[in-house]
Write a protein that binds this DNA or RNA. Structure first.
Lengths: 158, 158
DNA sequence: TTGACTTTGTTCAATATTGAACATTATCTT
DNA sequence: AAGATAATGTTCAATATTGAACAAAGTCAA
């Protein structure tokens, strides 16, 4: 592989690079905003993500949840027993496949999930307030395209 | 505050919400891609972020670095001594203000930073390959706008 | 100058996150 | 049916990350 003598300034001016770089920045700040909002109902991000996903997909398995949240299974193995103990959710054995544990919210968990969602919506409305409807649509479209490409195309050989 | 009875489906169809949601997903997958690339030169993401930022802003202080990376100061207090021990960087006391420690790369650190940048550029080129120049520009523009708004506007009252 | 306040970096405990190794259960192949 | 293979969830050690409390150094106001 060729090792071109690389001027950092050239990199920061590289159009795709320069523009992509804004994504992590905005993401992290948005995440902090959401985190502050959730703190007002004593909820933290990892638990909110779990609750909101089970609210949308009741009965999904731990593996499926891990896939949706893009975390490892072991992560959930640490988190869920704790949340079950606090009576936010139940883990029920699947009758057909005894390896599976299917996840359901209790009614307390559902209430908390809905409160979290309300705050999440408020945060999103707030931060995209200066963006037009069309800009939002285009942003989502872009991101979907990028994600699918990463997931489907073979990775570059470094 | 009014607690509207909230149908989750309404939320997932909310245009801003629905589109924003794609950002974290794409971000996390992109981050994993970069992480895999960096692994080929035995570099991990936290250390890459540090090296790349010092490469761009030699002599910045730990506080400034923390601000740019959006992490806490304590984070760097744990990370940097380790990296200094491995001779990737130096922390020099500022002559004028003895509270400050200014950060500089060693030549080994600089080499590693450049290699990391090369991989980062490759990752970005790869994942934005299906996006047009104009789409990239618009994406960056959007994200800049959102970030600035979050940073400048007062947060919503939850 | 003194005393209050601020800023920087460090330490520490608490919590998160990951990957590897593992046991259990299903599935596939023959 | 039996043995190999794969999928699911758990455990554990290693590493990350955060926020609070702290010490040292600087700044500001009276």
């Amino acid at each position: 592989m060729q090792q071109e003598p690389q001027d950092p300034e050239l990199v920061w001016n590289h159009p795709r690079f320069r523009n992509w770089i804004e994504v992590p920045k905005a993401y992290q700040i948005a995440r902090r905003l959401l985190s502050e909002g959730l703190a007002t109902i004593d909820l933290d991000l990892p638990r909110y993500d779990v609750l909101a996903t089970i609210l949308r997909f009741p009965g999904l398995t731990q593996q499926e949840l891990a896939d949706k949240l893009l975390v490892g299974r072991s992560n959930l193995s640490m988190l869920l027993p704790d949340m079950e103990k606090k009576s936010y959710l139940e883990r029920r054995e699947d009758a057909g496949d005894r390896r599976l544990k299917r996840l359901f919210l209790t009614s307390a968990g559902e209430d908390l999930a809905r409160s979290g969602l309300r705050i999440h919506v408020k945060a999103v409305n707030h931060m995209m307030e200066p963006s037009s409807e069309e800009e939002c649509r285009s942003l989502g479209e872009q991101m979907r395209k990028i994600r699918k490409h990463i997931q489907q195309a073979p990775p570059p050989d470094w």
